[in-house]
């Protein structure tokens, strides 16, 4: 039982946090700009590397580097939106999807050019996990990740439900044409959507680095589970993305638990396929997601 919690449930929760933060951004961007942002995974990578830079310069712990990584990634996202996505605001959305596909590779190659292709890690040495009740072992990093996620999700909730710009984001997600007629400053809403989406992606990227290590392909590998989480939650519904992220994260980890006999239920090599499996089942059974997102 304790082994189950220590090695499967807690890592699943941590992975769920990472997916959640990515999926909220994908979901918000989809709701407001109406396109699947294929460069979102590489925004996560960028955040992770910006944190690496800050840690290298200051020697701070990774968690302290998160605000700087979020800010830097948000600025990059805004520049990309201005240069690459904004010219296509009135084009068929699929053109922006193609553009974002290209942006994903450009961001990745820029990171590879700057930092090289080596695997990096935030700290060296072995960290002793904290031990509760003699045998419940949880690493400090994991506690930090979960707590920071709760704070960030709380902040997003406050923004969406209490602030004018947050409500305008929901309004635009409901009906962009009506938002324009109403006089909502749609470009300002889009700007804030990028700041929040990219910021959360960066935080998720740093979490990956805290949990394991940082490499230039991490974003690509995260993209699929993040999309799966966003679809599961009902795309365009940031609150659903939280549930979607948690379900996918935990399901991925639990899929390798020896539920039957002693062998893992699923070979760990296929762990990343779990998200996709869930997504396919969902696309067949209920494409609007568990919480009734947009129907296509």
């Amino acid at each position: 039982m304790l082994e189950f919690i220590n090695f499967y449930l807690v890592p699943g929760l941590v992975l769920g946090c990472i997916y959640t933060l990515g999926a909220i951004g994908v979901s918000l961007l989809f709701g407001i700009l109406r396109f699947a942002h294929f460069a979102h995974g590489d925004m996560m990578t960028l955040g992770a590397y910006l944190a690496l830079l800050v840690i290298g310069l200051t020697g701070w712990p990774a968690i302290a580097a998160i605000p700087a990584a979020m800010l830097g990634t948000a600025v990059v996202a805004l520049v990309i939106d201005r240069v690459s996505y904004r010219p296509f605001r009135s084009s068929p959305t699929i053109i922006i999807v193609i553009a974002s596909f290209g942006i994903a590779l450009m961001v990745r190659s820029a990171i590879q050019f700057t930092w090289g292709l080596e695997i990096e890690s935030y700290r060296t040495g072995i960290h002793r996990p904290m031990v509760f009740f003699d045998s419940l072992r949880i690493s400090g990093n994991h506690i930090q990740i979960v707590l920071t996620t709760i704070v960030l999700v709380g902040a997003v909730h406050y923004l969406l439900s209490r602030t004018k710009i947050g409500k305008a984001m929901r309004a635009m997600s409901d009906d962009p044409d009506l938002a324009r007629i109403t006089g909502i400053a749609t470009e300002r809403v889009i700007t804030w959507t990028w700041i929040i989406g990219a910021g959360l992606a960066a935080a998720a990227g740093v979490f990956v680095g805290m949990d394991t290590q940082v490499n230039t392909f991490m974003g690509w590998n995260l993209l699929l589970p993040v999309f799966a989480a966003a679809i599961l939650g009902g795309i365009g519904r940031p609150y659903g993305a939280i549930a979607g992220g948690m379900v996918i994260g935990i399901a991925e980890e639990l899929s390798t638990y020896p539920w039957i006999g002693t062998a893992p239920l699923l070979s760990p090599g296929y762990k990343t396929g779990v998200a996709f499996g869930i997504m396919v089942i969902l696309l067949i059974w209920r494409p609007s997601g568990l919480f009734r997102g947009r129907v296509f």
Binding site: A36, I94, L224, A228, I231, M279, L283
Partner: peptide, 13 residues
């Protein structure tokens, strides 16, 4: 499904 979904699904496959 909508074209974005097809893109995601085909990447997944």
């Amino acid at each position: 499904l909508r074209s974005d979904y097809l893109a995601i699904a085909t990447i997944g496959i």
